[in-house]
């Protein structure tokens, strides 16, 4: 596999470019921060991309640990899910890799055997994108789930108490707070 060798050789450069293009998907002033702040606690977003993108790349051309891959996808997608305004925005970072690899291997790509391998590689990128999309949906569902759960927890003990033994009517004052929820379109 010639492609694997090349990818391993250029790994550093590819990863740097990938990281940079993900960071550059943020507004200008934010991307410098994501790139330069080294402290993992002051810069969790940049840190996660730095740590997890290499796992994805490695998996694309070698056969790694499945749980490691799942964890990497999970960490990355969680962040993009809450930041993006559209699903496409959340998952598009995977597709960036295609162009980056083509750019990095430009001089070698005249080789037709390599081209064939690249097509296979890109199919894997597409597959990864679909996995990322699945994960995005999971994250979205999780958000709905925790939203519902949070509302429940706010008065968890109240419900329990009422269910357990409270009988008789509760006196009602002016109904405040009921209507705002109704005209939401979320």
């Amino acid at each position: 596999m010639k492609l694997v060798k090349l990818l391993e050789q250029r790994r550093e450069a590819i990863l740097n470019e990938w990281f940079d293009s993900v960071a550059e998907s943020y507004p200008l002033d934010t991307s410098t921060y994501l790139k330069n702040q080294a402290d993992q606690f002051q810069n969790p977003v940049g840190h996660t991309f730095k740590e997890r993108l290499p796992v994805l790349l490695a998996e694309l051309y070698s056969n790694g640990d499945q749980s490691l891959l799942a964890e990497a996808i999970d960490d990355l997608v969680k962040i993009r899910t809450v930041q993006a305004s559209a699903p496409s925005q959340a998952v598009a970072f995977v597709f960036l890799l295609k162009n980056i690899v083509r750019r990095q291997l430009k001089s070698e790509l005249t080789d037709s055997r390599l081209q064939k391998e690249l097509v296979e590689f890109e199919a894997k990128v597409d597959g990864l994108s679909l996995m990322v999309f699945d994960q995005y949906m999971k994250c979205q569902n999780k958000i709905f789930e925790i939203r519902a759960k949070e509302v429940q927890m706010r008065s968890a003990k109240l419900l329990e108490q009422v269910n357990k033994r409270y009988v008789g009517p509760v006196s009602d004052g002016p109904d405040i707070g009921g209507e705002a929820k109704d005209d939401s379109n979320i």
Partner: peptide, 8 residues
Amino acid sequence: PEEMARIK
């Protein structure tokens, strides 16, 4: 994809 990834 480059355009779509952009968080504005």
